[in-house]
C-alpha cells in the first residue's frame, strides 16, 4: 500500500467515527500524541493514589476506611487499564515507568497539592473526580480503540468515587460549625486547582488543535471546564458552601456561568515542579519501585526455577 493509501484509509476511518486499532497504520505523530496523553493519564491515576492514601490510616470510621481503600485500589486499576492501552502503541511499561520516576513524564498537577484534613478526601472525590468524569466521558468517544475501551471501564467505576466524596462533604456540611468550616476550607483550596485540571485555554493549548482533528480529544479544554462549573455550582449550593470566586454568576445570554480568571502562573509553576508536594510524590513512587524490586525478582526467579524443573522432568 502506498503512503497516500494508508493516510487516506486512516483519514477515512477517523472521518467515519470508527476506531483506529493497534495494528492499523497511523501517522507517527498520532501515535506519539496518544502515547503522551495515555501515559500521562496513567501516571495521574497512579500518583493520584498518594494524596488519598495519606488518609487511609486516619479515616474517621471503619466504613470510610473500607470505602477509601476500595477507591484507591480502583485508581491503581485505572492506571493499569491505561498503561495496558498505551502499550498497544508499542511503548513498554518499563519505559513509561522510568520516565515517571526520573521526572521526565508529566501527570495531573492537581496531585501535587497536599491533603491537610479529612475534608480534603471529600473534596477530591467530589471535585477532582467530578472533573475527571467530565473529561473522561468525553474521551469514551476518542478515536483510538483501546483508549476508548479503557475510558468506558473507568467511567463505570468513577461514579462511586465522586458520590462517596460528595457524601463526605454532605456529612461535614450538615455537621458542627467546625466541620462545616473544614469543608469550606477544603473547597477553597481545591476549587481553582480543579479548574486548572482541564488544561490551558484553547487558544494557549499546545496539543489541542491537532488532537481535536484526529478525534483523540472530542471537546476542548474550555468547553469541558465550563461544563464542570455549570454542573458543580448547584452541588455547592446544596451543601451550603460557597465557591471561592467573586466573579461567579449566571449569564443569561450564554446560558452558562461566568467565572473569574484562573491563575495560570500557579498552574505553570506546579506543572514544572514547584508545587508543595511534587518532590514527595515522586519520592514516594521511587521508594515504592525500589521496595518492590525484591518481589519482582522473587516472582521471576520462582518462574525460571519451575520452567527449568518442568524441562528437566520432560527430559
Amino acid at each position: 500500500m502506498s503512503f497516500t493509501d494508508e493516510q487516506g484509509q486512516f483519514d477515512a476511518i477517523i472521518e467515519a467515527e470508527e476506531k483506529i486499532e493497534p495494528r492499523d497504520w497511523m501517522p507517527e505523530k498520532y501515535r506519539r500524541n496518544l502515547v503522551r496523553q495515555i501515559s500521562q493519564h496513567a501516571h495521574s491515576e497512579v500518583v493520584g493514589q498518594l494524596p488519598e492514601g495519606n488518609w487511609i490510616g486516619r479515616a474517621p470510621t471503619l466504613r470510610r476506611k473500607a470505602i477509601l481503600l476500595a477507591k484507591v485500589q480502583d485508581e491503581a486499576g485505572h492506571g493499569l487499564y491505561l498503561y495496558s492501552a498505551a502499550e498497544t502503541l508499542g511503548v513498554s511499561r518499563e519505559k513509561m515507568m522510568n520516565d515517571l520516576l526520573v521526572g521526565k513524564a508529566k501527570y495531573a498537577s492537581i496531585f501535587n497539592y497536599p491533603t491537610l484534613t479529612w475534608a480534603d478526601v471529600g473534596a477530591i472525590g467530589w471535585l477532582v473526580d467530578g472533573a475527571a468524569i467530565v473529561n473522561q466521558i468525553s474521551l469514551c468517544r476518542t478515536s483510538y480503540g483501546p483508549y476508548a475501551r479503557a475510558m468506558v471501564k473507568i467511567c463505570k467505576e468513577e461514579s462511586f468515587h465522586m458520590r462517596q466524596g460528595y457524601e463526605i462533604m454532605q456529612v461535614l456540611g450538615a455537621g458542627s460549625a467546625a466541620q462545616k468550616s473544614m469543608a469550606q476550607d477544603a473547597l477553597n483550596r481545591w476549587w481553582w486547582p480543579t479548574l486548572m485540571m482541564f488544561g490551558p485555554h484553547d487558544s494557549e493549548s499546545a496539543h489541542s488543535q491537532q488532537s481535536m482533528k484526529w478525534k483523540i480529544k472530542r471537546q476542548s479544554n474550555d468547553a469541558l471546564r465550563q461544563k464542570f462549573v455549570d454542573q458543580t455550582v448547584k452541588q455547592a449550593d446544596y451543601l451550603g458552601l460557597s465557591i471561592p470566586d467573586e466573579d461567579l454568576k449566571w449569564n443569561e445570554d450564554r446560558g452558562n456561568y461566568d467565572f473569574g480568571p484562573i491563575d495560570w502562573e500557579e498552574f505553570t509553576r506546579v506543572v514544572n515542579g514547584g508545587g508543595l508536594c511534587n518532590d514527595s510524590r515522586l519520592e514516594a513512587r521511587r521508594t515504592a519501585n525500589d521496595e518492590g524490586q525484591w518481589v519482582r525478582d522473587a516472582l521471576m526467579s520462582y518462574t525460571e526455577k519451575h520452567v527449568k524443573s518442568d524441562v528437566d522432568q520432560v527430559a
Binding site: G77, L80, R93, R296, L299, M300, Y302, T303
Partner: peptide, 19 residues
C-alpha cells in the same frame, strides 16, 4: 478485556482477578 504483566500463569490469574 485488557492485558497485564505477570511472571507466570497463576500470578497472571490473580492479578487479572484483582484488576
Amino acid at each position: 478485556i485488557g492485558s497485564l504483566h505477570a511472571s507466570d500463569a497463576s500470578q497472571a490469574m490473580k492479578s487479572a482477578r484483582d484488576t
